[in-house]
Design a protein around this nucleic acid. Structure first.
Lengths: 359, 359
DNA sequence: CCCAGTATGGAAACCGGTGTCATGATGGGT
DNA sequence: ACCCATCATGACACCGGTTTCCATACTGGG
């Protein structure tokens, strides 16, 4: 033996193993059994109106009998488009991510669409190239973007360029209405503000998230507006910049609690930072809600487990995912049905025991 | 944002008489420009050894120059298999799900494989049919199963039948070693047991998860074994059956704390139930860790935010996902490389302030 | 220098669908 | 009765890859 190489080219000189054995019915089988051409079967599958009812029923009967389902890959190849929805996210909140995924899948149930996930990091080099490769390679049916990538205009420009339908989930409208799921963060923050004002708080503080997140500004703005509605003002000295992390929540709360005239209530940009406020308050001997009321944002599972249970702004995250996918389907089908419902996402306040009247 | 990419602008000079900037290059373009047949290009792509080095380099140069990437749909159609990995899960813990997803994607980075997620509900009618349709329809490259679906032998039988490679993540080995990521829940629970025993606890209790979850039994077994190592016994009366939920944690802890001789330490099947223990303890005026030590399982993000911070068994979840995908690739490629590393998942204990010596 | 044997490359079929266009059947208007 | 618009259907090329099968170039031994 001079060489270990087989003398003739083996069947699978590819990198991946052998395919499976059993055969599923194809469109040709259906056509043959129904006594029509494959094109007609294709028409039936795609609900073309140019098929006689009689023919359609016959074909459908055979399809049902054989349990035939068209091959998405072959269909996609011919359509120059896949039946995959991409979810691109960089949100560090697992609960958020999983619920949006669930919502998207709620919307596409039985439609033959599936969900491909693509976590990413906006700060990493080559981020845009990777996302472009992802979308272009898979010829995605459409893409759902969640914060904060949903705020990235360069990314959106790429999607436009690729002619890939997309829907953005964001705190405020950044695009055409049919491409947006707006979470109205300002409204949620305003509700928190009114709740505190109505309890009688006058000195209220805000711990913001990272300024690179649109939501940070929206929540601050809404909070200030909600206070203004009640004749109160969000004082500059009571606004501290956090980073959406627990540690930053601790640090910011320390600063606030160490002031000569500390606030009697703190609203934080998310629940993680609110948990940080709890820790700082405990360390400073400040009791919640006796000495300090706290409101978070997200109503994460943790909120109800903290002590005292945390009042927090709640979002219908799963619904948001569902709405996003529904809009995506409308976009991808180029349905110009402007009568389509435009369900609005409205944040609400989950009131728990971390808020009370000030002493 | 950061980098502006040189995507072919309308006016930019195109080195070649490149078709429209829109169209992506196909294998035919590569073949033509390289002066070879498409089959040769195909060989290069699939790393066939039957190509002259010279030819291969030339083809690769053109591929690189045009930024050509083969179309997964067309390739999949010919291969009778897609390049999608499915993740099937019914785990309600978002952190778990997201981290496994991340881990899988860590493993397939740059391999051209993508991840399709499929949450499901084992209790719903048609569950098996839906999963089968999912796998069969997409001709999945492979599937990763996490608890508790990973414990479903009917599901596994279907995957076998479909010749779909799969890897199961589970608390204990249920299959061939090359198809399993074992999380050794018993070992994690044993570590919790030893920790409590070493602190001096004698009356220790266990709140189990649902008996339909394998992990419930494993954690109980391991806990008992860990205690036995220290000459202690897990008394039947100190074992209560919960349901992996916060509410069940509260209820079970109430029962335990109301006993004539209550335990001085409680180990729970997950962190959610541990949070329930906190609530019950607070209601009963029992202080943690003064009167009661508590250990959870999962080390969820919440664990460190509770007060006192919860000692919990930690799993390298993201690594588990990565290992699973790596094994899947080995399986799918039918690599009989038995020398492949078999990294073991070992749970560890994140010791925090919820555990202390008993009074 | 001839020939067998092995590398290497190519034409054509194929994977399972869809698009384009032609054709036959139908039916209303004049 | 005839014409043309419309409906219903099919033949065939095509999407972008891989595989089958064969032709050719190259190699070394006798």
């Amino acid at each position: 033996m001079t060489s270990r190489r087989p003398r003739s080219e083996p069947g699978s000189d590819n990198a991946f193993g052998a395919p499976s054995a059993r055969k599923r019915a194809t469109i040709n089988d259906i056509a043959r059994l129904a006594g029509v051409s494959k094109k007609t079967v294709s028409r039936v599958i795609n609900r073309s109106p140019f098929v006689k009812v009689e023919t359609r029923d016959k074909v459908n009967a055979i399809i049902k009998e054989l349990g035939y389902r068209p091959d998405p890959q072959a269909r996609g190849l011919a359509f120059r488009r896949s039946f995959l929805i991409g979810m691109i996210y960089d949100n560090p909140n697992p609960q958020y991510v999983v619920n949006v995924q669930q919502g998207i899948l709620d919307a596409v149930r039985d439609s033959g669409l599936e969900l491909v996930v693509h976590p990413c990091n906006r700060a990493s080099p080559g981020f845009l190239d990777q996302v472009q490769a992802f979308v272009e390679q898979l010829k995605l049916f459409g893409v759902v973007l969640t914060p904060s990538v949903s705020e990235d205009d360069d990314l959106v420009a790429i999607l436009r360029d690729l002619d890939c339908p997309y829907v953005r989930v964001a705190s405020v409208s950044l695009d055409d209405a049919e491409r947006m799921i707006v979470t109205h963060d300002a409204a949620g923050a305003a509700e928190a503000a009114r709740h505190l004002a109505d309890l009688g708080h006058r000195r209220v503080a805000f711990i913001s998230g990272l300024p690179s997140f649109r939501s940070s500004h929206e929540r601050r703005r809404g909070f200030a507006e909600g206070l203004a509605e009640r004749g109160l003002e969000l004082k500059e000295r009571y606004v501290v910049e956090g980073a959406y992390t627990y540690d930053s929540g601790v640090a910011c709360a320390r600063k606030l609690l160490a002031m000569d005239v500390p606030p009697t209530a703190i609203f934080t940009g998310n629940d993680e930072m609110a948990a940080g406020v709890y820790t700082a308050a405990r360390d400073a001997g400040v009791s919640i809600p006796g000495d300090l009321s706290v409101i978070g944002y997200d109503d994460s599972p943790m909120a109800a487990r903290l002590w005292p249970p945390l009042t927090s702004v709640r979002l219908p995250i799963r619904d948001m995912g569902r709405f996003a996918a529904e809009k995506l389907i409308v976009l991808a089908n180029a349905e110009s049905d402007t009568s389509a419902r435009h369900p609005e996402v409205r944040p609400g306040l989950a009131v728990r025991e971390s808020t009370a009247r000030p002493r």
